[in-house]
Design a protein around this nucleic acid. Sequence first.
DNA 1: ACCTATTCGAGAACACTGTTCTCGCCGAAC
DNA 2: GTTCGGCGAGAACAGTGTTCTCGAATAGGT
Lengths: 228, 228
Amino acid sequence: MSAPSLRARVRSEMSQEIKAVARRHLATDGANLSLRAVARDMDIVASALYRYFPSRDALLTALIIDAYDAVAAAATEADSAVPRDDLRGRWLAVCRAVRTWAIANPAEYGLIYGAPVPGYAAPPDTVKPAARVILLLIDIVIDGADRLRPVKASPISAPLRADLRRLIEQRPGDVMEERLDRVLVAWTHLFGVLNFEVFGRLDDMIEARTEYFDHHMSLMADLTGLPH
Amino acid sequence: MSAPSLRARVRSEMSQEIKAVARRHLATDGANLSLRAVARDMDIVASALYRYFPSRDALLTALIIDAYDAVAAAATEADSAVPRDDLRGRWLAVCRAVRTWAIANPAEYGLIYGAPVPGYAAPPDTVKPAARVILLLIDIVIDGADRLRPVKASPISAPLRADLRRLIEQRPGDVMEERLDRVLVAWTHLFGVLNFEVFGRLDDMIEARTEYFDHHMSLMADLTGLPH
DNA sequence: ACCTATTCGAGAACACTGTTCTCGCCGAAC
DNA sequence: GTTCGGCGAGAACAGTGTTCTCGAATAGGT
């Protein structure tokens, strides 16, 4: 394994720079950013971009993967800054980290959690980074399995239970179906609130955004059985 | 008030036809549908569309308003098909109606509940139709205020409580702050699940979609205090 | 029945877009 | 030192939203 050649290094720096400029354009133009415009911003002709990304979709895909990694990184860092046995603290920290990132990068958030472009099929490279947040949430309940409060019984239908069992088998660490179910509920709610906030559905409605969010996430922690 | 002139009638029919064709294109091309393409589908030249809609954004806005009206209509119809005192039945009927519409019209759903186009500011015409679903949900708890089960206490911070009180004052029919809070939680969750399902985040994860949805909505009904 | 004013669709034009192809150029490897 | 691969420039093509002008049709008023 030799050190990366100079060529390879400047190539990677160039790709990084292109993505950075594209991210800036994302903030103003959304998903229909213009290749030619980012090329202009780099004093480069548009066709030159094709040396680094085979198409506009490929560039967007790269941005999507970066975005998934960025949320996951923010969430993971927030989680590790809290003592591992403070389950509720970790839970809230992760949720708040996701929110902070989403509010700071609304366009990138919209790119990954908004409506997908119909023609665009998410490449397989995106599914692993996309799952990291939910896996983090599951880890929290796995780590504290013995300290969790029992969830109020709520019948789960057989087919749904089968889905849950399949999910559990796919990964190391055991969880009860009911518990995983609640984690999925909380996970759904996390992004439900964030979609509403980031996409402007709370405008002229809720002013106390942070309190609103914390309150929702706290309710979800209760529902999941995280101890106080 | 005279009957609409012939001119006005064919004009409105033409607008309707344009929107219908545009809706078809929405399903395949999403929000970046092509004016020229819908014009071609109508054996019309693109500039002729400008007699009916001043811009592409205006056409999209019309589609957005129609979409809001369509969900609201589906929800309202489902609600009125259930006896008014069957609160839980009404609640589930409304949620399922929204889901059915969303799955049948994923592109239009994405248009109104996905990420907004950054440059595009939602015109005031859209805010009233947009609010109809949440108002319907609030109506359910207002209608059955005396039959609701008490919600488990969960402290609401002062600023958030102020928001809730303001919302309550804005409309006829009285609700407790705690109750409105739970309705907002349920409302958030409804669209949280739907976003995940329609936008494909449940792929390779949950097969029993209907059961999954019903289960979530049932939990939300519990949380809101709707009687069994 | 005529005249007029308004509305409509066609078509050309402009400034964009993503993408492809060809052509020089420069640096790296043999 | 020559060859080769990668890189950027530039032209080209098809397609886009939007504006403008120009005939034709048509409704309303007399």
